[in-house]
């Protein structure tokens, strides 16, 4: 369905996407993780046809995407993007008139659920409410590809929970590809099925959440015992203190000798160890 082949995007001296390749064959909720500057927004803008790639090809259902051919089947509204300072109701009404397949009833229902005052102007809304309004307008579009860039930015825990519910409801009503870029790893893990991790413009991991639950673990124990075990596996990072070692692994499960413990590596720790640590075994 979605295919990026060796896509490169450069901004003057910054390489935002470095020969990036990815295939998304099926519908589903995909979580896009990456540090700030990893290239997540660039990835979404390229997919939406907002910007052009320096090289490589991007296709959706076999059709090439470029700024000259912004795909109708993609809905991308930038969270921090500027909006007209119109009333909430006017913004939804305008979005409805501008977008094909816009579900006005869904948008209005979600506006009520998130207690967004339809009479308030955009600049009168808090950061979280602005983000929520943009997310509602994006999800209300029944396109086959929905790109949500930081949809939980500025949301309180209750709103984040409601957002997750809304995301699931929207997906249940219209199964499609929904790619959610976020830093709230644990929250999104409750609703997503697949994970995409980017770093420095490259795709590091494309995996199912269940796979990560199964393959991501930590071996801990005395260094002389843990080190040889870790060397034969895909070790993401290690930490050593006073003769003890913890090795964070993303590989098949192994049977460990006595004195070495094996613990599940949470999604957040998996991400941190994958992109945030420099000392690899």
């Amino acid at each position: 369905m979605i295919e990026l082949k060796a896509v490169t995007k450069r901004y003057k001296h910054t390489m935002a996407m470095d020969s990036f390749s990815l295939t998304i064959p099926d519908t589903g909720v995909y979580c896009l993780l990456g540090r700030n500057g990893a290239g997540k927004t660039t990835f979404m803008k390229l997919l939406a046809g907002y910007i052009s790639a320096n090289s490589g090809t991007i296709t959706i259902d076999g059709t090439t995407v470029s700024p000259g051919r912004m795909p109708d089947c993609v809905s991308y509204l930038e969270s921090g993007g500027t909006q007209f300072n119109m009333r909430v109701s006017e913004l939804i009404d305008t979005a409805c008139r501008l977008q094909t397949n816009f579900d006005r009833d869904f948008a209005q229902e979600m506006t009520k659920r998130f207690e967004l005052n339809p009479k308030k102007r955009f600049r009168q809304l808090s950061l979280g409410m602005r983000t929520m309004l943009t997310t509602i307008m994006s999800l209300a579009n029944n396109s086959t590809v929905i790109l949500l860039d930081e949809p939980s930015l500025g949301l309180d825990p209750i709103s984040r929970d409601r957002f997750n519910t809304m995301l699931l409801e929207s997906y249940s009503a219209h199964p499609r590809v929904i790619i959610v870029s976020t830093h709230d790893i644990d929250d999104i893990a409750q609703v997503t099925e697949s994970l995409l991790i980017m770093d420095k413009g490259k795709l590091l991991v494309q995996a199912e959440i269940d796979d990560i639950d199964e393959k991501a673990y930590t071996l801990s124990g005395p260094t002389p015992e843990v080190l040889p075990l870790a060397k034969g596996l895909n070790c993401l990072a290690t930490t050593q203190t006073a003769g003890l070692m913890a090795a964070h692994i993303f590989d098949h499960r192994i049977t460990v000798p006595q004195g070495v413990s094996i613990d599940r590596l949470g999604l957040k720790d998996f991400f941190i160890n994958l992109v945030g640590r420099e000392s690899h075994a």
Partner: peptide, 13 residues
């Protein structure tokens, strides 16, 4: 000023 705002509402070029 208005171009980006219009696109951010889901308009096409």
């Amino acid at each position: 000023r208005n171009f980006n705002r219009t696109i951010n509402l889901g308009a096409k070029r």
